[in-house]
Structures are given as structure tokens and as C-alpha cells.
Amino acid sequence: MTSFHLTGDANADELLATDDNALLAGMCLDQQIPMEKAFAGPSVIAERMRGQFDVLAIAAMPQEEFVDLCAAKPAVHRFPGSMGARLHQLCQVLAEEYQGDASRLWADGDGAEILRRLKKLPGFGDQKARIFLALLGKRRGLDAAGWREAAGEYGQDGYRSVADITDAESLQKVRETKKAAKAAARQAEEGASR
């Protein structure tokens, strides 16, 4: 079994390592908040739902009720309303199209097909879908043909994203890479506006 070191909480990391639905949900939440908080979100939700991250139960709940669950203190996300609604929509898609099992998204097909499926999910744009595909390949043992190519730069070796985090040291390297990329983008933007 693959271990994860994404949240700083052993129980939350264990859930990510053992529950594909929780891992996908964590990726969905990973925007505009620290990665550790995003990926710990499914564990917080599980605690609030009698100890289980249950996609079918979430999908069956009224959206407002699930958003309230996400907004309870401490909130699951900085924007509990919009992100709670998005996560609820994701769970509905998993329930309706994948029998409540995220692993069915990548159980067959090549990398390009899996990427296409991921990009259709609520909250998954091109970059997030490519990062998650890389996470599946690098950390979950996905062996679909062409997954590295479909993941683009995130499929390459290095420290670009959550897919490359295996311990505290690699987490720090990913943070440094992201910081350098943001600085370069800012510099390029400033250069273009002159």
C-alpha cells in the first residue's frame, strides 16, 4: 500500500492512502488553501459523517445540508459554500456515473482517456486533471499506457506538484518549485506590462 505524507495528520493521510474517493475529493478541494488543509478535508468530513467518507451518502444529501456540514467550524475550506457545493456535485457524478467508486474513472483506458474523464469532473480543469493523473501514476501505481504523456510536465520526474510528495523533504522541494514558478510568472507579467 502506498503511504501519503500530504496533511501532517497520520489518520488523514491513511484515509487518502486507502480510499480513492477521499483522494479525489482532496484534489477537488486543493485550491486557494494550503495543500495540507485541502487533503485533510475528506478526513474532517468523514469524522462529521460517523467516521466514513461516504460518496453515496453525500450525493444523497441535500446540497445545502452538505454545505452546512463543510461550513461547520473549523470549516473544511476557506470557501465552504462554493467548495462544499462543488464537492457535493463531484460526489453526485461519482454516484451516478461510477457507482460511487472513483477508481472506476481510471480502471481502464489509456492516459488520454483517463485525462478526458478527469477533466469532465466538477472542479477539475486541465491542470488539476493532469496533476491528479500524475498522482495516480506516481503514487498509486496506475499503469495505463501513455499516462506520463497525458499528464504533461506533471508526469515527468521532479518536484512540480502533489504527485511528487513522498515525505517532508519532497514537500519542501515542491513548495520551492511552486514559489519559483510564481516569481517567474510575476516577473514575466511585469515585463510584459512595461
Rank of each mutant, 00 (worst) to 15 (best):
K120A: 15
T177C: 10
K179Y: 08
E153R: 14
K37D: 12
P34A: 15
E190M: 13
W147L: 10
E96H: 11
A71K: 12
I165P: 00
S170Y: 12
A46G: 05
S82E: 03
T18Q: 14
L69Y: 12
D20H: 15
S161Q: 04
A168N: 13
Q156L: 15
R50I: 00
L87V: 10
G155V: 02
L29V: 01
A183F: 01
L69V: 14
D126N: 15
E47M: 07
R86S: 04
A57G: 13
N21Q: 04
L23H: 07
A150Q: 07
G84F: 08
A22W: 03
A59V: 07
D110M: 01
Q92K: 15
R194Q: 10
M83L: 13
A192N: 14
D143Y: 01
I33F: 08
A181V: 06
D13H: 09
R104K: 14
A40T: 09
A134L: 00
L87T: 09
L115H: 05
E169V: 01
S193F: 05
Y159M: 11
G141W: 09
R78H: 10
E176W: 06
I114W: 02
L23A: 15
G109R: 02
P80Y: 12
H88R: 07
G51M: 00
F124H: 12
L115I: 11
E47V: 01
E64A: 15
F4V: 13
L29A: 14
K119P: 01
L142T: 05
Q156S: 13
G141V: 11
R148A: 09
E153S: 02
F53I: 04
K128Y: 01
Q187A: 15
I33C: 04
A180R: 15
A107S: 13
A188P: 05
H88N: 08
K178G: 02
D13P: 08
G155Q: 02
G109Y: 06
R175M: 10
K73S: 14
A150R: 10
A150G: 09
G84R: 11
R78D: 05
K120S: 11
Q89F: 00
Q172Y: 01
S103C: 09
H5A: 15
G8A: 05
D143C: 04
A180C: 03
A40M: 09
R48M: 11
D143M: 08
L136Q: 07
D13R: 07
H77Q: 06
A40C: 08
G84A: 11
F66P: 05
M83G: 02
A180F: 02
S170Q: 12
P62Y: 02
K128C: 00
F53A: 03
I114R: 04
R130W: 00
L121S: 00
D110N: 15
F53N: 00
T2Y: 05
V44W: 06
E65P: 00
M27V: 06
D30M: 04
G109Q: 07
G152T: 04
I131W: 03
R104W: 00
S161I: 03
K178Q: 12
Q187F: 06
K173S: 03
